[in-house]
Design a protein around this nucleic acid. Structure first.
Length: 300
DNA sequence: AATACTATCAACCGCTCATGA
DNA sequence: CTCATGAGCGGTTGATAGTAT
């Protein structure tokens, strides 16, 4: 079938906007609102397609747009949020007032990606000659993610209404199984150890378990492949209804996750100092023995 | 000064999703 | 329920500015 183009492209202007066009667009929207974007260009006297008008307005002309360089705080937020939701630029933008998804996306691709690469936090380069093991990179990413989730957990447990949207965003990244193990412990978590339990019961714990399952039978897949393969394995295992094998997988995963976790601790200390020194002076990363104790409880 | 290379970012393209007939 | 349409999103492109040789 194929979708019709968003507008009749014949004779419509493309490319950079002139100040005159900007003025027409701003004047019209301020007077009438944007209404239907499809109809707007005609009504505003613009020789552009509605899509182009919408983009120009939302990414550049909107009065609430904050221009200028990103602050350190904004950078941190972007990194943390990206660790949680990935390339969901609109979701990230929603947490940064005045910034557009396009701007954040560009900033990520041109600045932050490079910075993280310099810090050794990027996805591993393709090919067998990759400098670092995949698990190491995953650990780095997960550490950042863990930190961000911990922060969100703390905020939400303190009843901050402003975190509602971001908490919802976090929830969408969790697998369905992650919520099944999060019980009253998670709900009541306030101490560092409780925070950890909440994390373990969240999608983070799932990630650990999935990683471990795959790591047991694979050489050095990328992080994306690790996740994909783990999900696939889970899906393949599920229809068979083999609960015992699933359970043994989880136990095996938990054991291996302890090793991964130790890696987390190492990196948190050595390379991720920028994420430390907050949250009321306690470490977000409890010692391995506490993790092991938690595992015993979780898989009883 | 000229040229090549790199970085940046506005804008476009194509896809998916939501909604209403 | 199906289909058409509009809106929005994420990936990519291309123009331009800045820097290196």
């Amino acid at each position: 079938m194929g979708r019709a183009p968003c507008c009749d492209k014949k004779g419509l202007k493309k490319g950079p906007w002139t100040p005159e066009e900007d003025k027409l667009l701003v004047d019209y929207i301020q007077a009438n609102g944007h209404g239907s974007w499809r109809l707007l260009p005609k009504l505003a006297g613009l020789n552009r397609c509605g899509k182009s008008c919408r983009l120009r307005w939302t990414n550049y002309l909107r009065p609430d747009i904050k221009r200028g360089p990103f602050t350190a705080e904004e950078q941190k937020s972007i990194v943390q949020l990206h660790g949680i939701v990935g390339n969901k630029w609109s979701m990230i933008a929603a947490q940064l007032p005045g910034r557009t998804d396009n701007e954040i996306k560009n900033y990520w691709n041109t600045h932050l990606k490079k910075q993280l690469r310099r810090m050794g936090l990027d996805d591993p380069p393709p090919g067998p000659a990759a400098g670092c093991p995949a698990a190491r990179h995953m650990a780095q990413w997960e550490t950042a993610r863990l930190e961000a989730e911990a922060r969100l957990s703390l905020l939400s447990s303190s009843g901050a209404a402003a975190t509602t949207t971001i908490t919802a965003a976090t929830t969408t990244t969790s697998t369905s199984s992650s919520s099944t193990t999060a019980g009253p412990v998670a709900a009541a978590a306030t101490s560092p150890a409780d925070v950890f339990l909440r994390l373990w019961n969240s999608s983070i714990g799932d990630s650990f378990r999935k990683l471990a399952v795959v790591a047991a039978g694979s050489s050095s897949p990328s992080r994306a492949d690790v996740t994909k393969d783990a999900v696939k394995q889970e899906e393949e295992a599920a229809p068979a209804g083999d609960d015992s094998s699933a359970a043994s997988n989880e136990v095996e995963a938990a054991t291996m996750a302890v090793d991964e976790y130790q890696m987390f601790l190492d990196f948190a200390g050595e390379e991720l100092g920028l994420f430390h020194g907050r949250y009321g002076g306690f470490s977000l990363f409890p010692p391995v023995d506490l993790l092991e104790a938690s595992l015993e409880t979780a898989f009883k």
